Amino acid sequence: MTRDTTRPTWLAWTVMAVACAGVVVVAWACATAWGAVLHGHPAYAVLLGLTTIGCALALRRSLHPPETRARWRRVLDVAGVVAGIGWLAATAWLRPFTAVEPALAAMASDADVTVTETATHVDLVPAGEPSGTAVLFQPGAKVEARAYAAVLRPLAEAGHTVVIVKQPLGVGFLAAGATADAREAHPEADRWVLGGHSLGGVVAAAETNDDRGVVAAAETDDDVDPGGSRAGEPGPPVVGLLLYASYPAGDLSASLTAEVASISGSRDGLSTTADIDASRANLPVDSTFTVVEGAVHADFADYGPQPGDGTPTLPRDDARNQISEASVRFVDGLGD
């Protein structure tokens, strides 16, 4: 086999540069989003750890290369550099939006609401007897779950258990099983509302539609447990879909049986008013649409400004209050 006695200088420097860039990316993510890294789903923290280890190994290999190198090893080095650049780009892009006040203050338990946090979800539970209606909420892409505590806490204060999902890498489609886990954790709830912000709303809409088949099957199956579910499958039905600056990916106008509330902002630069208007045809005709005048995409949680968003003309506190009020009004109505 042909061997080279030297390693190309350009390749050695490139590997070292990519490894150093990886260290910078990890340091930047931790410095700018430490709260989200610490309190988010552990998947991103693991990603940062793997990135650090990979960069350390690459630096060591660059500083102490073997004396002779087969030509095929050089090809692997080049492929590794390309893969490493892609890995670092994904790691940087996946840096989460960190929760800020007043969401952090809303994470504290008091006489009205008990707040608990695990590696996969945040629960806001009424201190008194909870209503039969619970809410499972999917955050927007890369938005930390705690960022929704202030806007959703009024639901818990109104008597409804709220479960905010911590999504792996901040992607709702990776949070498979969240609905089943919430049902198992809160057997006191006999009906559920699935909600979500932006991409989280897309996921919630799809799961609400899919759940229709599960419930229908459970209603006709002889193997039903006392809680209303088929053996091995959740039973309490999904009766509502709560969309924050979001819309379904496809046409659910004929298949969706749950009631729908769409809350959006008139100044949203990401889920625009045109997008929301177009979604009306894909939702049941009796869906409720609430537009918060002057609100933007980032008003539906507390995580600071978001690239590509519009310019708000309404104070953030006012926008949050209107969103919360519309949400409570919708969920309260489902218990009638």
Rank of each mutant, 00 (worst) to 15 (best):
271 S>K: 03
199 L>S: 05
38 L>W: 10
129 E>L: 14
267 R>E: 15
291 V>W: 04
180 A>P: 11
128 G>Y: 03
168 P>S: 15
96 P>F: 08
120 T>C: 12
130 P>S: 07
98 T>D: 12
267 R>M: 15
180 A>C: 02
325 E>D: 15
216 A>D: 06
233 E>R: 11
334 L>W: 09
251 D>E: 09
121 H>L: 15
170 G>C: 12
173 F>T: 08
187 P>E: 05
264 S>T: 12
81 V>T: 05
258 A>C: 12
324 S>V: 11
9 T>E: 06
301 A>N: 07
290 T>M: 09
302 D>W: 10
269 G>M: 08
225 D>K: 14
101 E>V: 08
246 S>Y: 04
198 S>G: 05
185 A>G: 07
334 L>Y: 11
302 D>Q: 10
154 P>L: 09
332 D>Y: 05
202 V>L: 13
331 V>I: 11
57 L>T: 11
186 H>F: 10
167 Q>N: 08
42 P>I: 06
166 K>Q: 13
84 G>Y: 08
310 G>E: 14
234 P>E: 07
285 V>N: 01
194 L>A: 12
177 G>Y: 00
27 A>E: 00
276 I>Y: 10
228 G>I: 02
310 G>S: 01
115 V>Q: 07
162 V>H: 03
59 L>I: 14
184 E>G: 07
39 H>K: 11
69 R>T: 15
248 P>W: 01
235 G>S: 05
77 D>A: 15
286 D>T: 12
329 R>V: 11
308 G>F: 02
213 G>R: 02
1 M>A: 07
268 D>G: 00
35 G>I: 10
246 S>D: 01
117 E>M: 14
182 A>V: 06
106 A>E: 09
307 P>R: 12
300 F>C: 02
47 L>T: 12
141 A>G: 11
77 D>P: 07
276 I>P: 10
186 H>V: 04
83 A>H: 06
214 V>K: 00
60 R>T: 15
198 S>E: 04
150 A>E: 04
230 R>G: 15
184 E>F: 07
300 F>R: 00
238 V>C: 13
216 A>L: 11
195 G>V: 04
312 P>I: 03
318 D>F: 02
85 I>Y: 00
195 G>W: 06
50 L>F: 06
103 A>Q: 04
242 L>P: 04
61 R>G: 09
197 H>N: 03
287 S>D: 06
110 D>F: 13
294 G>R: 11
260 V>P: 02
182 A>I: 02
201 G>Q: 08
14 T>S: 13
329 R>K: 13
46 V>R: 00
227 G>L: 15
244 Y>E: 02
188 E>F: 11
240 G>K: 01
193 V>S: 05
195 G>N: 10
199 L>A: 13
99 A>D: 02
106 A>I: 12
93 W>A: 14
78 V>N: 05
238 V>P: 03
118 T>L: 13
144 E>R: 08
11 L>M: 13
333 G>E: 10
73 R>K: 10
264 S>V: 09
268 D>C: 09
308 G>R: 10
281 A>F: 04
